[in-house]
Design a protein around this nucleic acid. Structure first.
Lengths: 250, 250
DNA sequence: GTTGACCCTGACCCTGCGTCAGGGTTGGAG
DNA sequence: CTCCAACCCTGACGCAGGGTCAGGGTCAAC
């Protein structure tokens, strides 16, 4: 009764799709007429529509085959699964939708909100975008390589920027980006930063995973390179010159 | 800084996926270390996450490539398109979800509700499931081959079953399925049905597309075969025996 | 110095069709 | 009667977006 294109049309698929289903054995090959054309009956239409309903719901063709020959109970439970899976996909898509909405506005996607807040705090303090981006990169690497330290660093950073002296130093450092490495203001800045490190019991030897960020900072500006070198030099001198001073209190 | 598996982990993809993106030129190949391993910086993580965000949203990789190098305005309008497309997909899935819910209960999917109502009316009259299925098949073929006659047929059928005599005949016919073709009750049934056809100005020569349904009815039961043959024979005799009777009134 | 977890390239495999090539049929118009 | 469009057939390759070997080199830690 029905030709292949008529059958396909009733199910809203292409002729190629019907032939594909024959090929994979999902839909039985019908009788042929005198010239070798396939001729379909109404049952084929019913079968095809059932197949498409499942396929549209995302069921792989191989599983549809099994499903159509399953007991009603199995079938019903499979339908329940498929329905749940569909709902999951819908939720997924809704989430992706909200994520692409954030694509326009940069780092929200890749960093936790607290870190985004810190970066915005830097911006509102007047820190250059170049420096903010270096800061962002260091957070990303930290998250990739040493995620468990992130919460502590968030607290530390926020505490730092609650302290006016630290903030002043950070900003001064940022503004020095284009200074000549021999600018005398750099000497004062280096003294101040060294004092800050002593006061906060830090030294500028970085945990390994930040070395590359540091080297990118150096590359970005000769002035910064001089600051980092000088601080590293002084820190090293302190460690080797008075070793006993560090040990005596214990 | 990052190895390929670390990079992949930060974006929640497999190593193979990252390499695939290199292969298609979507993510630039990074520097290699001394032993030929790829080494990634934070920017690569940002890029990869952006790529995945778009890919998850269903954007083909080829288009992502173009998108990432687009102007902000184009980018923004593309995002709007993608978002709309996502919403469309979500709606689609919701529709598929309601459709698979109907899969359990047979013909709802493949026939308009009015026809389903007719089939249920047959069932409630006590018509056998076998006959109902033949009826259903004929509706499916009608819809596939001659869809514009469906509404009229729906009205006709309903009118038929509002008439007790027609209903009685239909039921009697249904019950005769397993009778012997020589059962004397068949003769009375044939007489009654012939009279019905004359009264309703119908003859049993079917529109071409129902011939196969008719032949399947015949195959289903020798008794039915006899009924159909007898009716066709009488109808033919009427058409040839009194041709002038048909023409005179004009 | 060996074990296990990584890294490299290259290659084939998978789904669910689209599409092209190279034919044969059918049905209606001219 | 011929011609044309619109069907039908089989067979084959192509595509995205990776999965999954195979066959080999590295690294780190014990």
């Amino acid at each position: 009764m029905l030709t292949i294109s008529q059958l396909a049309a009733t199910a809203g698929v292409t002729v190629r799709t019907v032939r594909h289903y024959h090929h994979v054995g999902l839909l039985p090959e019908p009788e042929r007429d005198a010239s070798g054309y396939r001729r379909y009956n109404a049952q084929a239409a019913v079968d095809l529509i059932r197949i498409r309903t499942l396929a549209d719901a995302g069921v792989p063709l191989a599983r549809i085959d099994a499903l159509l020959h399953a007991q009603p109970t199995e079938f019903a439970s499979a339908i329940t699964d498929i329905d749940a899976e569909l709902q999951r996909k819908i939720d997924q898509l809704a989430e992706y939708r909200s994520r692409i909405a954030e694509l326009a506005s940069g780092e929200r996607l890749v960093l936790p909100p607290e870190v985004v807040a810190i970066l915005n705090r830097l911006r509102s303090l007047g820190v250059s975008e170049r420096r903010v981006r270096l800061e962002r990169d260091s957070w990303i690497l930290m998250q990739a390589l040493d995620p468990h330290v992130v919460p502590q660093r968030i607290r530390d950073k926020n505490a730092n920027f609650d302290d006016p002296e630290t903030t002043r130093l950070y900003l001064a450092c940022d503004q020095s980006v284009d200074w000549d490495p021999h600018d005398p203001r750099l000497d004062r800045l280096i003294d101040d930063m060294d004092a800050w490190e002593i006061k906060h019991e830090r030294d500028s030897s970085q945990p390994g995973y930040l070395k590359l960020v540091v080297s990118r900072i150096s590359e970005a500006s000769p002035a910064w390179q001089r600051i980092l070198d000088a601080l590293a030099h002084r820190a090293k001198r302190r460690r080797t010159a008075v070793p006993t001073a560090d040990l005596r209190p214990r």
